[in-house]
């Protein structure tokens, strides 16, 4: 476990523990992480070439439809999925619910998603992610939110998008917000960074990192609404380094074919001929939701602070 005693934030950000966590995120690059709800689905995802699976009780589209409090997945489901596949297994915890996170860590889950898809447990504080051996991925809508999560110890950032919507528009908005703000910071003078950090609500050290390197200090993936191979390509072209596909696969007509084709398109996102090939014989995509039909209270992306 990470030493928690006297270290200040900067020590934590250069710790060996974080290096190992970010190391796994690096290994997931150029890949597709798929939501699954059973060992059978996990096998389908692995056989299709997924780099990891997210073990869930319900995919986001069903969470949205069925309502109620969405919590951490049952331990037995996670264990059965861990048993079934050799690729990394991720699982979600509620925002701020560090007790759920401790259970996933104890289970040896490879990545913990502190996720807005579940019902938040804390409306002010996210989990202190440095206090865990397991790496965390967190959602972000903009650069300030991404850097706050990194300041808390996230080893991987993903866009929130709008989970379970089958609509890519919010993921695009969030990707463009993050990458656009990074470019804007690069254009600033050194002496303008303090005011920028204040406006973003993000630690100055991390704003300085972005200014110097032109990127986040951890990998940046896309999630929330990816349903087709071109959706994955769009995200990669906008700067995502991998994609999460939630409801998009197992809510479609032919999950194995769709899973394979999204993997294929993600590997070859710069080659239109290959993406075209990936778009053949897919069957029907999941039903999508028009954003305008979603009330503000139904938007999962608004969870998290």
């Amino acid at each position: 476990m990470v030493e928690r005693s006297e270290d200040n934030g900067n020590d934590r950000l250069t710790s060996e523990s974080l290096e190992l966590k970010v190391g796994l995120a690096e290994m997931l690059k150029g890949g597709v992480i798929m939501d699954v709800t059973s060992p059978e689905q996990a096998k389908i995802a692995e056989d299709a070439g997924a780099v990891a699976v997210m073990a869930l009780e319900r995919v986001p589209a069903d969470i949205r439809k069925e309502g109620g409090v969405a919590r951490m997945t049952a331990v037995e489901i996670i264990e059965a999925i861990q048993e079934a596949v050799s690729i990394p297994v991720m699982a979600k915890v509620r925002i701020g619910h560090f007790a759920e996170a401790r259970i996933l860590e104890t289970l040896g889950v490879d990545f913990i998603d502190e996720s807005e898809v579940l019902t938040p447990a804390d409306e002010e504080h996210h989990i202190d992610k440095f206090a865990f051996k397991s790496p965390f991925v967190c959602g972000a809508r903009d650069l300030g939110e991404a850097l706050r999560r990194i300041a808390e110890g996230a080893a991987l950032i993903r866009t929130k998008g709008e989970a379970g919507s089958g609509n890519i528009v919010e993921a695009v908005r969030h990707l463009r917000a993050v990458t656009g703000e990074i470019r804007a910071i690069q254009a600033l003078r050194e002496d303008e960074l303090v005011a920028k950090a204040k406006r973003l609500g993000a630690p100055l050290a991390l704003v300085r990192y972005v200014h110097r390197h032109g990127k986040l200090p951890v990998p940046n993936f896309a999630a929330g609404g990816i349903a087709t191979p071109p959706d994955a390509v769009l995200c990669m072209a906008l700067g995502a380094e991998s994609v999460f596909v939630g409801s998009g696969i197992f809510k479609s007509e032919d999950p194995p074919a769709r899973a394979r084709s999204i993997v294929h398109a993600t590997t070859h996102w710069q080659e239109p001929e290959e993406v075209l090939q990936a778009c053949r014989g897919l069957g029907k995509a999941m039903e999508g939701l028009e954003m305008a039909t979603l009330a503000e209270s139904e938007r999962l992306a608004h969870r998290g602070w």
Binding site: T14, E19, Y209, H213, P219
Partner: peptide
């Protein structure tokens, strides 16, 4: 060891 919190 890398001195930054992530890929440099």
């Amino acid at each position: 060891p890398t001195s930054s919190p992530g890929p440099s």
